[in-house]
Design a protein around this nucleic acid. Sequence first.
DNA 1: CTGTTAGCGCCTTCAG
DNA 2: CTGAAGGCGCTAACAG
Lengths: 351, 351
Amino acid sequence: MGQDEGGSPQRARRASIRQVAAAARVSTSTVSNVLNNPDVVATSTRRRVEDAMAEVGYVRNGAARQLRGAPSTIAGCLLLDTANPFFAEVSRGIEDRLTEAGCLLIVGSTDVRAAQENNYLRMMEELGVRGILVNPSGSRLDRLVRLSGRGTPVVLVDHPRAGADLCAVAVDDVHGGGLAADHLLALGHRRIAFLGSQAGIRSLRDRGEGIRRSMRKAGLDVSSTLVEIPVPEPCTVDVADSVVDQVLAVSPRPTAVICFNDVVALGMLRGLRRHGIPVPGQMSVVGYDDVQFAEQLSPALTTVRQPKYQLGRAAAELLLAEDRPGHQHQEIRFTPELVVRASTAPPAIGG
Amino acid sequence: MGQDEGGSPQRARRASIRQVAAAARVSTSTVSNVLNNPDVVATSTRRRVEDAMAEVGYVRNGAARQLRGAPSTIAGCLLLDTANPFFAEVSRGIEDRLTEAGCLLIVGSTDVRAAQENNYLRMMEELGVRGILVNPSGSRLDRLVRLSGRGTPVVLVDHPRAGADLCAVAVDDVHGGGLAADHLLALGHRRIAFLGSQAGIRSLRDRGEGIRRSMRKAGLDVSSTLVEIPVPEPCTVDVADSVVDQVLAVSPRPTAVICFNDVVALGMLRGLRRHGIPVPGQMSVVGYDDVQFAEQLSPALTTVRQPKYQLGRAAAELLLAEDRPGHQHQEIRFTPELVVRASTAPPAIGG
DNA sequence: CTGTTAGCGCCTTCAG
DNA sequence: CTGAAGGCGCTAACAG
C-alpha cells in the first residue's frame, strides 16, 4: 500500500465498487449486495468481497447513492447565531436526535440577515438535504413554505406555525414576557425598560406584547410604565454593555430592565457595574433563556427559563417524522417558567 | 449510532436540467452553460433559459454535480462538545471562514467517545466532504492520517501536529498550565488541586505537565504540592459541582484549584458556595478558556484565555488551502494568556 | 453559439 | 446465488 508518487496535488480518485469487484473476482452487483443485502450473498463470497474492500480501501460514495435515490443523511439547521449559548444548546439537542437516526447536521448562523439566510437555504436545497430546521430571522414564512412544497421539509424552531403548513416547535413568548413583567410589577416596579432587538424578531415582539398585557392587566398605563430600547445587532455582550448608557439616560430612570436574553443581561450587568449602579439595589435585571451561567453571575440572574435542549430534540423529531407515510404537520409548544434569583428586588425608595 | 429511521422517498422528483431545456427549447448543455459559463450563451437564449428555470422551479442537484467531479461544498468538524461555549466559539470561527468560501459546515460532538468519532469520520468521508476539522478525542492520530491519505484533508483543531503529516492549529497548553500555576504559586499557594478530565485528553495532560514544570521550577516537590483530581465525563456544570466534595476531602485541603475549563470552574464555584466556602477567601479558583461569562461570575473568574474564534478561523483557512497546488502541511500555534480577576488571592493564613 | 454524446458510481431490474 | 445492462442529473468534450 505505497503512496502514489509524482507529487500531483490532485486527490487520487477513490476506489469504486468496480475495483472491489475486480479484486474479489465477482460482479459489481454482488459487491452492492454485500453492502445493502448481505443475507443474499453466500458467506464465503461475502468474506472475499469484504477482504477486497479492505484491500483497495473502499469507501462508499454518498453522492452516487443519493443520485440513485437514497435518502440524504444530512439535515440542515439555521439559527440566528450558533455561538449564542441558547442556540448552542438547541443545536446540541438537534444533533443528538439526528445522530440516533444516523443523520449528520449542517449548521448555519444567519445573524438575522435575510441574504445570509436565503443563501444557506439555497445551498442546502441544492444538496438535497433531508430537511431544514430553521429559526426564521424575519416574519415572512412564504419562502419556507415554498421550499417545503418543492420537497425539502422545513421545521420551524422556536417559532410558532403562524398558520403556515409546516411543522413547528415553539415556546410561548407572550407568556414568557408576561412572567418577567408580572414578577417586576409584583415587586413594585412601575418604570421598566425592555431591551428588545431592533431587528423585529418575532420572539421579541411577542415578549414585548406579553409585557404590555401584563401591565394592562395590572391596570397600569403602558406608555408611562414601559420603555422599549432597541439593541443593535449583533447582540453581543459588548453591544449590550454599551446600551447601558441609553437605559440610564431615560427620564425618569427605569428601576428595572428586562433583557431579551441572558447574554444581553450579562452585558447589562457589566455596564451597570462600570457605572457603579448596584444590582438589584438601584436596578433590577431580568434575563431570558436561563443559560448555564445565569445562576452563577454576580448577582445570580433572575431569568425566564426556556427548554433549550428539548426544543432542539423535539424539532429534530418532527423533521425525522416528515417522510413517514401519513404525516401531518404539527406544532409542539413549550411553556417557559420564571426563575427568581438575586438580580431582582423591590425598587429603591424614591427611585 | 442508531439505524436509519423511516425514509420512504415520497418526495416529488425535482425538475432536472432536461425539463428546463425542454421548456426553453434548447439542449441540456445550453442550460448547463447558462449555469456554469454564462458568457458563452447569447443573451436572448440565456434569458429564455432563466425564465424556464423559474417556471419549472429548477434547483441544481448537488449530488449529480459532485458525482461529476465538482468539489464538495461541505466541510466537517468534529469537536468534543459543540454546546460547550469554548467549542461553540471555535465552531463559529470555522463557520464564518467557510461561509466566505461558499462552504457549509457539518458539526458533530464526539463526547470523547472513539466510536462516535469514528462513526462521524466514516459518514463524512462517504459524503466526500471537502475536508474535516477535528479536535481528536484520543491520542492516536493514525486513523486521521490514513483518512487524509485517502483523499479527505484533515486539519487538527486545538491540537499540535505531533509529527503527523497534517495541518494543525494549536494553543500552547503546557505554557497555559504554567501560567495558571505560576500565578497561584506567586500568591503563596503550596497546595493546589488540578481538576483534569479522566479521559486522558491531550490538552489536559499538557496543562498538567505545565503545572508540574512550574512547580519544579519553583523548587517545590510536585507530589506534595499538586493534587490531580479527575472529572468524570460528561464535563457539565453539575458534574463539576459534585466533584467539589472530593476536593474538600483531600487532606491537607488544597487552598487553590485549577479547573480544566471555565464550565468546570462554574460548577466548582457553585459547589463551593453550596458548602459555604468563600472564594477566594478559603479557596482560589482558576478557570481555563476565558469564555464570555467568565468576567461576570461571582467572583469574576481568573482564567487562562485562549483565542477561540481565531482558532476556528485559522483552522478553516488551513483547510481551504489544502487543495491549492504545492500545498505544504503546517502548524499554526497560538499562545494563551493569563487573565487575573477576583477568584484568586493569597491563601488564608494557616490554610 | 448550440446540440449530441458519453460517462461519473451506484443500485435495481432481469436473466442465467 | 451471480452477472449484465440501464439510468439517476450533470458536465466536458466534441460536432455542427
